[in-house]
Design a protein around this nucleic acid. Structure first.
Lengths: 221, 221
DNA sequence: CGGCCTCTCCCCCGCGCGGCGGAGGACGAT
DNA sequence: ATCGTCCTCCGCCGCGCGGGGGAGAGGCCG
C-alpha cells in the first residue's frame, strides 16, 4: 500500500566520499530518492531551490558557507513548504547543535550513525515534525543548563571567600549587605571585592557580575 | 531476516485509555511487545525492574511520582543495561522537556504523534543512542537559548532608548561611556538609567544588569 | 622555623553613581 | 489644538564604591 511518491533528498557535504556513501545507503531504499548534491553551503542553497527536496542532509563544516548558515538561508528563502533539514556532524561535542536548532534544523545526526538509523531518521523527519537527536544533545543540554561551555581560568583562582562574595555581588547585594550576610565587617568585604575585581579583570562590580554570569558561576538557579 | 527478538516495551500512563491505545498500536507491529503497564510513577519503577524492557513510554503527569522522577529512579537503579525511556507529553510548551533530558530520557514525544511516528520512534530509540524530539523542542531551545521561559513584563515597558541603555549597562559600560557611544550627553544617560532602574525595580545598575541577564535581554550572545 | 596564602580589619581619598526636581522640543494621538 | 510620550539636558546633593596602602591572626608547607 505504498502509494506515496518517494521522498526527495538533497545531500550537502564537502567530501565526495561521504556523499557517495550516503547516496548508496539511501538508494537501497525504494521510498527514498537523492535528487541533488552539493559540496558547499552556497551550492546547497541553490541546489535546494531547484530540486525542492523533502529532506536535506546538511554537513556542518563546509567551505564558503557552513551548514548552519546554509540552513538559515534555505529556510529564509523557502516560501511555501520548506524542506526538513537534518544537520550532520562528526563530533559529539560540537556546539553546533544549538546553533543548528536555532537555525531551524529539523534534526541532528552523527556521522557514525548506522545506515538503518539514517534512513529511519530521514523517514521520521519527513513524516512528522519530529527532531532527531544524538546522545550528544543530552550532554549539551546539561552544559547549556549550567550556562555554556568552558569556565574561564579566573574562576579557579578565586578563593572560597571571594567566590562567595562574587555570588552575592551577582545576587545584587551591596557591600554592606554582603558583610551582614557573611557576618564580617564591611572593610573585609571591600577587600574581597577588590580581589575579585583584580582577578576577573573587571573595572567595577557591574563588570564582575557580568563575568560571573557569563562564566556560569551563577548556576543552580 | 528478522532474527532479532522483539523489543520489550513498558507503558506508563495514568489513563487506561491511553495505555490501551498505545498497546493496540504497538501490538500491530510484530517486532514490538508490550511486557508491562504502570499507572503511576512508583509503579513504573517496579514494573520496569521486573519486566526489564528495552523501551519505556513514560507519561509526564502521573500521580504519586511523576514521569520525570520515575525516569531518574529507573536510570539510577538500573545496573547493567538501562532501558531507553521516551517521555510522552500532551502539550508543546511543557517545560518538562529539559527536565526530561536532564533526567536521562532518551526521547521525547507528543501524544498527538501518529502511530507510524510512534513505532518508528520506539525502534529508533532502541536501536541507537538517538533522541527523538518534537517541534516543541525547537521553540524550547530558542527560549532556553535566550535564557529561560517568559520575559518579564517590564521588558515591554522599556522605551527603545532605555533598552539600548540597559544593553550597554549590561555590557559593562559606565554612564559616560554609554553617553559617548550613543552620542548624547551624560545627563541624558543618567535620565535613561534612572528610568531603567525604576521600571526594572532595580536598586542600582548592578541589579538592573542582573535583571537584564535573567530576562534574556542580553541574547544574541 | 620562616615564608606564603587566606581572612580579617583599619585609614584616607576621589569619583561615579543614584535621587531629586526642573525644563525644553519633537512627535503622534485624541 | 491639546495631551501624552519620548528624548534631550541642566543643577545639586549624598553616598556607595573603588584605589591605595597598611596590618594582625591563623593555617599550610618546605
Amino acid at each position: 500500500m505504498t502509494t506515496a511518491p518517494p521522498l526527495r533528498i538533497v545531500l550537502a557535504d564537502d567530501e565526495r566520499m561521504v556523499r557517495t556513501a550516503l547516496r548508496a545507503i539511501l538508494a537501497a531504499e525504494p521510498d527514498l530518492t537523492v535528487v541533488g548534491e552539493a559540496a558547499t553551503g552556497a551550492e546547497a542553497v541553490s541546489v535546494v531551490r531547484e530540486a525542492r527536496p523533502d529532506v536535506v542532509l546538511m554537513d556542518v563544516r563546509m567551505p564558503e558557507v557552513d551548514g548552519i548558515r546554509a540552513t538559515e538561508r534555505i529556510l529564509a528563502v523557502s516560501t511555501e513548504q520548506p524542506p526538513r533539514i537534518i544537520v550532520v556532524t562528526t563530533f559529539e561535542n560540537d556546539s553546533y547543535v544549538y546553533d543548528a536548532l536555532r537555525a531551524g534544523a529539523a534534526g541532528f545526526l552523527l556521522k557514525r550513525a548506522d545506515a538503518d538509523t539514517l534512513v529511519q531518521a530521514v523517514r521520521l523527519v519527513a513524516r512528522s515534525d519530529t527532531l532527531l537527536f544524538p546522545s550528544a544533545v543530552r550532554a549539551l543540554a546539561e552544559e547549556h543548563a549550567r550556562a555554556g561551555a568552558a569556565p574561564p581560568a579566573w574562576v579557579a583562582r578565586l578563593t572560597g571567600r571571594e567566590g562567595e562574595v562574587l555570588r552575592l555581588m551577582a545576587a545584587g547585594l551591596t557591600n554592606a549587605e554582603i558583610a551582614r550576610r557573611l557576618a564580617v565587617g564591611p572593610a573585609t568585604v571591600k577587600t574581597h571585592v577588590a580581589a575579585v575585581l583584580a582577578k576577573t579583570g573587571a573595572r567595577d562590580r557591574t563588570q564582575a557580575v557580568i563575568a560571573a554570569y557569563e562564566a556560569g558561576v551563577m548556576n543552580i538557579r
